[in-house]
């Protein structure tokens, strides 16, 4: 590290490179594959749950967090029943 860079602000280009590498690793899989993986997983998981309980489509929350080595897909399904107010399925 040179004296110049010691005094200057933290460099941002490595951050840009890392963000792109993570993002594109995922996008290539989705665009190159048959369909959107997230949409596919959502449909199949909802179909399985739908066999046993009635699910309202708009009461479904889906979150995705893409990480370097692992990604998490979080699907939260709200089931309107007084006995079991909420069941969260984490896939």
């Amino acid at each position: 590290m040179s004296l110049m860079s010691f005094f200057s602000r933290r460099t941002t280009a490595p951050v840009a490179r890392d963000r792109l590498q993570i993002l594109l690793a995922h996008e290539r899989g989705i665009v190159g594959g048959k369909s959107d993986l997230v949409a596919l997983l959502r449909e199949e998981i909802l179909n399985v749950i739908g066999k046993h309980v009635s699910v309202e489509r708009e009461k479904v929350q889906i979150k995705l967090d893409r990480g370097d080595s692992i990604s998490t897909l979080e699907i939260e399904v709200e089931i309107p029943s007084p006995a079991s107010p909420r069941i969260a399925v984490n896939a």
Binding site: S5, T11, T12, A13, A16, R17
Partner: peptide, 16 residues
Amino acid sequence: RAERGEMLKVDDVLEI
């Protein structure tokens, strides 16, 4: 700017 780490370098873009 690339040398100062403010901009993606040629090799970064090529690698990606």
